[in-house]
Amino acid sequence: MIYKFSKEFNQIKKELEKAKRILLVAHARPDGDTVGSVFVLKEYLAGSLGKKAVVTCLDSFSEHLKDIFVGEDFVDPEKVKINDYDLLIGCDAVERGFEKIVTSKNKNQTIILLDHHPHLEMKKIKPDIVISDENYSAVCEILYDFFDFHRIEISKKMATYLLTGILGDTGMFQHANTTPRVMEITAGLMRKGAPLAKTIQSSFKSKRLETLKLWGRALERAEMNEKTGVIMSYITKEDLDELGATSEDISSVAEILNTVSEAKFSLVLAEQEDNKIKGSLRSEWYKNVDVSEIARKLRGGGHRLASGFEVAGKLVKNEEGITVE
Rank of each mutant, 00 (worst) to 15 (best):
P127D: 14
P127M: 07
P127W: 06
P127G: 14
P127T: 04
D128M: 14
D128H: 15
I129E: 14
I129T: 13
I129V: 14
V130G: 11
V130M: 15
I131V: 15
S132M: 06
D133E: 05
D133H: 04
D133I: 03
E134H: 12
E134L: 11
N135I: 00
N135C: 09
Y136F: 14
Y136M: 00
Y136D: 02
Y136T: 07
Y136A: 02
S137W: 00
S137H: 01
A138L: 12
A138R: 01
V139T: 13
V139A: 01
C140L: 07
C140G: 08
E141P: 03
E141L: 05
E141K: 06
I142W: 02
L143Q: 00
L143F: 01
L143Y: 08
Y144G: 00
Y144A: 01
Y144I: 00
Y144T: 05
Y144L: 05
D145Q: 10
D145L: 02
D145K: 12
F147G: 08
F147M: 12
F147T: 10
F147L: 10
D148H: 14
D148R: 06
D148W: 03
D148T: 04
F149M: 04
F149V: 12
H150G: 08
I152S: 11
I152A: 05
I154W: 07
I154T: 08
S155N: 11
S155Q: 09
S155I: 11
K156M: 09
K156F: 10
K156S: 14
K157Y: 02
M158V: 12
M158W: 09
M158D: 09
A159G: 11
A159V: 09
T160E: 15
T160N: 07
T160R: 13
T160P: 05
T160Q: 12
Y161N: 05
Y161S: 00
Y161V: 06
Y161L: 13
L162I: 03
L162G: 03
L162F: 08
L163V: 07
T164S: 08
T164K: 01
T164H: 00
G165N: 07
G165K: 06
G165R: 09
I166N: 01
I166E: 00
I166C: 04
I166D: 02
L167K: 04
L167T: 05
L167F: 13
G168Q: 06
D169E: 13
D169M: 11
D169I: 12
D169A: 00
T170R: 02
T170K: 03
G171C: 03
G171N: 09
M172P: 04
M172C: 12
F173S: 13
F173V: 03
F173H: 13
F173R: 08
Q174S: 05
Q174G: 00
Q174A: 09
H175M: 10
H175R: 12
H175Y: 15
A176L: 06
N177A: 07
N177S: 06
